[in-house]
Design a protein around this nucleic acid. Structure first.
Length: 475
DNA sequence: TTGGAAGCTCTCAACACCTA
DNA sequence: TAGGTGTTGAGAGCTTCCAA
């Protein structure tokens, strides 16, 4: 029913008087001018329905037209990354940037306007049909509990999310994919009853984001989280990581410049955390890329850069999270490992041969630098926690250091045990170092088996490696 | 097979009014 | 008084059906 203007103004119920043309009860009581006006309800002509909130369409036509945005409204890293050089005569500098992102059309390619001036930005809708709570997969209180467990227990292992930024509300609003991935991985450990439904939904969202070519920090984080605690039969870790890295490169992350405090003094804390969120994810990808490359012998994708090498300064930022120190340890370890392994690869894979005697001397130097690395980062971690506090950080730093020593000494061991070096007793130092490395790892694991329970899959792979190494070296 | 009318579903924006 | 939620009306977009 239509309400008069005075009632509308005060948002009160407008009750008609007894006579059809008389004032409403409130206007009559207060002696106000009771004026009615034709309402202007309804959508205005020309308003577009947001594509993201359209229902799923069965036809292939709809699949092409529908472009959902699982990213929320993540600010583009383009603000903090140097843009393509203007005036560059390559296609990247000459053509419309939207066209270069893959939105090909003659009109767009010929347009000289930047951004997407041809199409107004889509308005984001507050409703999220892919939200696992709205879908009824789990209720709010279970979701909150799973989320809390992820942040407190699981996240410290991977240093992926910033607990001050990634609150329950923030992640849920920002990306249903990341939200579901976090809940699924937490459910795997803390509430297996809802794990399957959450995992399947996360996989559906992964497929959708791939199908639509969606790109955002949250999608990358979700893919990483799903990969860290993947199912045993899932063999996509390598390809998923590659896809995530390409996505980041498309967002310009490979052009991140070296960390400096001066560049962010003008930012408020929220903005700084958003920027660090992107940077942290790129560091995590670097570590993961190098780790998986080392484990599988395949090439890595992310090259070392001034940004990667500024990790220690980045960890010293006033708003750095305590998990950032663990990430700092991992990044510096991977920087060290890539330079060492190119020298110490087995002779069959080296272009130049380094005599074993020289290699032994080199290895002892490297061993000392790993020990310095370990004590430096353990001290950093200890500074930020109380003595009685039991976190996974110290364990992980020692674990990775020990694993690295084992890998380092296992490489020349192949040469020692090969027929070319018939008298292996001459190189007992190398054999002994590799053997004690494997033993140290297993001792460490047995002392901290509780920490191992929550660890990501790669930790278990590394554990299995040390055990397999010992078994094989006894033959 | 194709074009277009009719009808249906869904979204969006404005409105009504409850309640703190 | 005004924040917030449910309701309403109109248009967009899609499917179905039918005639050419």
């Amino acid at each position: 029913m239509n309400a008069c203007l005075p009632c509308r103004k005060v948002k009160m119920k407008c009750r008609q008087g007894s006579q059809p043309a008389s004032k409403c009860e409130r206007c009559a009581r207060k002696s106000l001018d009771c004026v009615f006006q034709q309402h202007r309800r309804g959508r205005k002509p020309g308003t577009k329905i947001s594509k993201r909130t359209m229902p799923a369409l069965p036809s292939a036509y709809a699949a092409v037209k529908k472009t959902p945005d699982y990213s929320g409204d993540t600010p583009s890293i383009a603000e903090s990354v140097p843009a393509e050089e203007p005036g560059n005569l390559q296609p990247s500098g000459l053509l419309n940037q939207e066209a270069m992102r893959g939105k090909f059309s003659l009109r767009r390619i010929l347009s000289t306007t930047e951004g997407d001036a041809l199409e107004p930005p889509e308005r984001s809708s507050p409703s999220r049909p892919e939200d696992p709570i709205e879908m009824g997969i789990l209720n709010l209180s279970v979701a909150k509990s799973l989320f809390e467990n992820f942040i407190v227990v699981l996240n410290p292992y991977i240093s992926q999310l910033d607990p001050s930024l990634h609150t329950f509300f923030y992640v849920r609003q920002k990306s249903s994919f990341l939200f579901t991935a976090v809940l699924a991985m937490s459910a795997k450990t803390f509430n297996p009853i809802v794990y399957n439904a959450l995992y399947n939904h996360a996989q559906d969202l992964y497929t959708e984001s791939f199908r639509n070519g969606a790109k955002s920090t949250e999608i990358v984080q979700a893919i990483l989280i799903l990969t860290y605690w993947k199912q045993p039969q899932d063999t996509r870790a390598w390809t998923s990581l590659g896809y995530a890295i390409r996505m980041c490169m498309d967002m310009g992350w490979h052009k991140l410049t070296a960390y400096s405090t001066a560049s962010r003094v003008a930012m408020d804390e929220a903005r700084r955390r958003e920027v660090r969120n992107v940077e942290r994810t790129w560091y995590v990808l670097f570590v993961y890329d190098r780790s998986i490359s080392l484990q599988t012998g395949r090439p890595w994708m992310i090259e070392r850069s001034a940004f990667i090498e500024s990790i220690e300064a980045w960890c010293g930022d006033p708003i750095a999270d305590r998990n950032d120190d663990l990430l700092g340890a991992f990044v510096t370890l991977r920087l060290m490992s890539s330079s060492i392994f190119s020298l110490h690869a087995p002779s069959s894979r080296r272009s130049e041969k380094v005599p074993l005697e020289n290699m032994e001397a080199l290895l002892s130097l490297k061993k000392a630098s790993i020990e310095r690395w370990e004590s430096h980062w353990v001290q950093n971690v200890e500074r930020k926690q109380s003595p009685e506090e039991e976190t996974c950080h110290k364990f992980l730093i020692r674990f990775y250091g020990t694993h690295f020593r084992l890998q380092l000494f296992s490489l020349p061991l192949q040469d020692v045990l090969s027929s070319e070096y018939s008298d292996s007793s001459l190189h007992l130092d190398i054999i002994w170092a590799a053997f004690t490395g494997a033993m140290d790892m297993l001792k460490l694991i047995s002392r901290h088996s509780g920490q191992l329970y929550f660890a990501q899959d790669s930790i278990h792979v590394m554990t299995a490696y040390s055990a397999a190494f010992l078994v094989k070296s006894r033959r």
